[in-house]
Write a protein that binds this DNA or RNA. Structure first.
Lengths: 198, 198
DNA sequence: TTCGTTCGTTAACATTTGTTTAGATTAATC
DNA sequence: GATTAATCTAAACAAATGTTAACGAACGAA
């Protein structure tokens, strides 16, 4: 049987990400990560599915995922891409303990650290800076969403396309174009058309 | 000169809102609110303007505001409405201390409590549950934004219009229709056209 | 009151975007 | 390697949305 000491090296990346947010002792870190484990999913496999309550937060060590939501007509929309060194979850479902509206699906082969609810709650209760960590995560995502929403109002589809390409230059090699179109809120045919005009 | 004891009655509403989020002693409450003050703005007057760093959070006691953002072509978009008993600010600007992209403008005569940055920072540093309050506020807005973004993907303009009318039935008596159109991301002429079809 | 402004509706027309279908290319699977 | 599936592009047409202009009603300021 492995002890925590043996498992930790795999956890280096997530530890680094956590230490960028808060001051945390080695002892606290071990407590926080004791229920966490790593998991690998293949392309098109799901990390979590809609209609189930999200009881896990994922930290992406390697790979890329997309979060999808299905509308009343059954059409699937890509609402986020998530990359290496980012946390991903349906946070609304996690926080409210309501059924998730999102699914999270791997695009490439993806390796994640799974943080179960028990680990997060242990953190809030026992970490000196637990609530601070929660606040910073929430604020980080708040800023991200605020930005996304403003973009929707202020930029045209072409501008949004150029913005992604700038922020995430490699995206065209890693995700199919029809998913980018879905993310932009336009049809794949139309994105192809717009590209011709640039 | 008024002491805090005299000022507090005006502050009842905001105290109630704060107590719904965290446990807070009367002494802590007085510390938190000691730099806060009330302010009344007339319709079309601004609580805060774009390009300035937001150093205040507003609590709306009475009235209604809209948050606006201007695109590259100079067109103004309404991105939020905020009502009684809600906090409003350009939180991204407040948190990052960067120039605001939003302006906040009163639609009706509006009375707010102004919470300066000093009050918020005092709260984070001295309140027993300061970070918890920060986390809950950030999480609350996170959920709000998450929802807004999903709505953009999943609902048509007509559905979004019906959703507002349901969530905020009185909106048509309180805000001009062209602002609602702007909020929905469509032209005022088109909203008028869509209404005919319902 | 009177005058000017803001607001909502309507119609006509222009532009953008979606849909369908087809074909060609590449990637994945057996 | 052969076959199937996935992906992107293209064209033609349909639907949705924007723009402009005109008009009248409601509202506010002088």
């Amino acid at each position: 049987m492995f002890t925590l000491r043996h498992v930790l090296p795999i956890m280096q990346q997530i530890q680094h990400a956590i230490r960028q947010m808060i001051m945390i002792s080695q002892q606290e870190m071990e407590g926080l990560l004791k229920d966490c484990y790593s998991k690998t999913v293949k392309p098109k496999e799901f990390l979590s599915k809609q209609e189930q309550i999200s009881n896990e937060i994922f930290f992406i060590c390697k790979g890329i995922t997309r979060s999808t939501i299905v509308d009343q007509s059954g059409v699937e929309h890509t609402i986020h891409f998530s990359l290496e060194n980012q946390f991903v979850a349906d946070y609304s479902s996690f926080m409210l303990k309501t059924p998730a509206l999102n699914s999270i699906e791997a695009i490439e082969e993806t390796e994640v650290i799974v943080m179960p609810r028990s680990a997060i709650e242990w953190g809030y209760a026992h970490l000196q800076q637990g609530d601070r960590m929660g606040r910073l995560i929430a604020e980080y995502y708040f800023i991200y969403f605020d930005n996304r929403l403003k973009n929707q109002y202020v930029f045209t589809p072409v501008q949004r396309y150029e913005n992604i390409s700038r922020v995430f230059p490699n995206i065209h090699n890693r995700v199919p174009q029809h998913m980018i179109a879905s993310y932009l809120g336009i049809s794949p045919v139309h994105l192809s058309r717009l590209k011709k005009l640039i």
